[in-house]
């Protein structure tokens, strides 16, 4: 063992971290997400330890499956883009007669296919392994899926825009971006179990209404229609903002001449 060589290699990694702030952000990001999510879950369990608690636990499975729907939709967009970067194919796409809207639409469809596969697999496993039937949500599942998919697409476009702007140094955002939202969209606990300061933030995002609605449907078989409308309205807003951001960044990379560097790296 040569300490000089080990120190040189450590130095190499430190240089890498110093040159890539995203890596430093990640060091704090994931532990914070874990802490906030499980902290809120703990509060939720503490407040609900009563004879009905057994049924509440099923909320976790429902929340997990619906969360994955949103996550896969986001991944469909962001990872499809990254696949073109990783395979150095991006330039071939950008010099072909492909409009940005066509490119993004294709990634949306890939996102939808990923959702279908994920939903089928998770539904079967949760049914056979844990006697949890996601179809107990009946036809409510359709607006739930649609709304979560739309928000996933928005996040996918935002992730892609950030990767376009910051290059592969921001690649990890493709996985991290949804988890920025996980602690505040009430996936595994009710909004009322969240710290008071974070509740108004939670209601700014479409998935919050869906996860709250899911728990209501599982408890009482119905939910507030308002929640669906708020979620859909916010989704339209976020889709428009994310689309604008993507096109603005794409244009910016063209103006700054970053596109080719990025596409061939």
């Amino acid at each position: 063992m040569n300490f000089r060589i080990i120190s040189a290699l450590v130095m190499r990694y430190l240089f890498l971290y110093a040159r890539s702030p995203m890596r430093l952000v990640e060091l704090a990001f994931w532990p914070v997400v874990d802490l906030v999510v499980w902290g809120n879950v703990t509060v939720f369990i503490q407040k609900n330890t009563n004879p009905e608690f057994g049924s509440y636990v099923l909320f976790f499975l429902g929340g997990m499956i619906l969360w994955d729907i949103m996550f896969r939709a986001q991944q469909g967009v962001a990872i499809s883009f990254l696949e073109d970067v990783w395979t150095r194919n991006l330039l071939n796409i950008f010099v072909a007669p492909v409009r940005s809207s066509e490119y993004i639409s294709a990634t949306f469809i890939v996102g939808m296919l990923r959702i279908l596969i994920t939903a089928v697999v998770l539904s079967f496993i949760s049914w056979f392994g844990y006697a949890f039937n996601i179809f107990q949500l009946s036809w409510w599942l359709i607006p739930f899926f649609l709304n979560l998919m739309l928000f996933g697409w928005s996040l996918g476009m935002i992730s892609t825009a950030l990767i376009l702007r910051w290059g592969l140094a921001a690649e990890s955002l493709a996985w991290a971006i949804p988890f920025f939202f996980q602690p505040v969209v009430a996936v595994f606990y009710r909004v009322e179990d969240m710290p008071a300061w974070s509740r108004p933030i939670a209601w700014c995002f479409p998935p919050t209404y869906i996860f709250e609605g899911m728990r209501d449907v599982m408890k009482s078989g119905t939910m507030k229609w308002d929640y669906l409308w708020y979620s859909a309205g916010l989704n339209v807003l976020y889709l428009a903002l994310a689309g604008w951001l993507f096109l603005w960044v794409l244009n910016l990379t063209r103006k700054r001449g970053l596109l080719t560097k990025f596409a061939t790296q």
């Binding site: 696949e83 150095r88 330039l91 071939n92 061939t264």
Partner: peptide, 10 residues
């Protein structure tokens, strides 16, 4: 159309 030694097909 375009072809470059620095791009690739997947």
């Amino acid at each position: 159309n375009f072809s470059s030694a620095y791009t690739a097909l997947p």
